[in-house]
Amino acid sequence: MVSPAVIAHRGYAGVAPENTVAAAVAAADRDGTAMLEIDVQPAACGAPVVFHDERLEGTRDGRPITDSEGLIWETPLEDLESTRVLGTEESIPTLETLLEAVPETVGVNVELKNPGTTNLRFAESLPARARESRREVWDPFVERVVDGCDAFDGEILFSSFCEGALAAARDVAPDYAAGALVWDDLEAGLEIGRRYDCEAIHPPRNAIAGTPLETEPYYGLPADEPALDVVEVAHDEGRTVNVWTIDTWTQFDQLAAAGVDGIIADYPGVATSAAGR
Rank of each mutant, 00 (worst) to 15 (best):
D67Q: 09
G164D: 04
G154V: 11
P93G: 02
V102Q: 10
P115R: 00
G58K: 02
R121Q: 11
T117V: 05
I65A: 14
S125H: 14
F51E: 03
R135S: 10
V146G: 10
L80H: 06
S133N: 07
K113A: 09
D53P: 12
R55I: 07
A123C: 09
D153P: 00
T105A: 15
G107K: 02
L86P: 05
D53C: 13
S82V: 03
G70Y: 10
L56M: 10
F51V: 06
L77K: 01
N114D: 12
S82P: 00
D153W: 02
A44S: 10
D53W: 07
V49R: 01
T66Y: 08
V108N: 09
L86V: 05
R84F: 03
E100R: 14
V137A: 12
F122H: 15
T66V: 06
T59P: 02
R135L: 05
L98K: 05
E100M: 08
P93W: 01
V102K: 02
A43R: 09
E90A: 14
L98A: 09
E74H: 15
D139M: 05
V108G: 07
A128F: 07
C162L: 02
G154Y: 10
R84G: 02
L126A: 04
E78M: 11
E90N: 12
E143N: 07
D79R: 14
S91V: 09
S82I: 00
T94N: 00
L99C: 08
